[in-house]
Amino acid sequence: MAGRKRKAGRAAGYKLLIFGILTLCVILIAVFAPYLTPYDPYAQDLSNALQPPGPDHLLGTDRYGRDMLSRVIMGSRTTIFSALLLVAIITLAGGAVGIVCGYYGGKLDSFLMRVSDVFLAFPGMVFAIAAASVLNRGVLNAVIALACISWPRYARITRSQVLAVKDAPYIMAARLSGSGTWKIIRKHIIPNIAGQVIVTAVLDIGTMIMEISGLSFLGLGAAPPTAEWGSMMSNGRSMLQTAPWVILSPGCAIFLTVMVFNLTGDTVRDFLDPRYRGKRRRE
């Protein structure tokens, strides 16, 4: 039994390594996008419009003759960065609200939780579409719109985790030894609840990529000519029959990226599973 457990723990380690490397590759592509593009992703060349994939243009060209591969690489930057930014914002904002609610409780807690109930009661995407259309067009505004509807979930998760640990004897012991509230939150509460919140955040990156692309697809995210996977798919949708590569290349990019992030999230969760934790530390 113990052997099987240890084996499972090690398998989770290998998986984490593989998916970690894949995730790192995706992020590196996004970081170094301007140096990786074979052509200028914004240079139009109408004489070369709608070229099918070939040796010159590996993924073909769109209707303005822009190289699809370059645009997909460049688009990774917009899409992945904004998804990461979004997840960072909602984790921090929701986490802060959750910690305050869980630790202090009382009226403030009731008030903030009712506010989050209101947000949770909205159909998420509909609210995001409404918010994004009120704000001006742009990726940053799409991020803000999605952040508005996504933080309550994090607030709830964090709050429940804080409630689970805040009455533990070790918190009382810390208070008895003279540690202030801030120190207790920073040194004892956050380290003990971070795992669960981080797993949720990593699992959400994929979903957020889809939602940002979704908003852009509807014309509420990235403004043209910014290369963004969702808006690129939107541009290509009328030519699905005649030039499928225009819609398929960003589509596949979304598919693969979301899959990599989701699998990474799953492995991180397996890895942080408390059933493996004790074993691993002793090995």
Binding site: Y170, A174, L176, S177, G178, K187, H188, P191, N192
Partner: peptide, 29 residues
């Protein structure tokens, strides 16, 4: 005043060493 709790393992932060826990009060002073 100091206190010793009923559940020994829970009275130390699971993510910190026993030494850290023992030092916390002294460091706060």
């Amino acid at each position: 005043v100091q206190m010793v709790f009923q559940t020994p393992q829970d009275s130390f932060d699971p993510r910190r060493t026993l030494g850290d826990g023992i030092m916390e009060g002294m460091r706060n002073q």
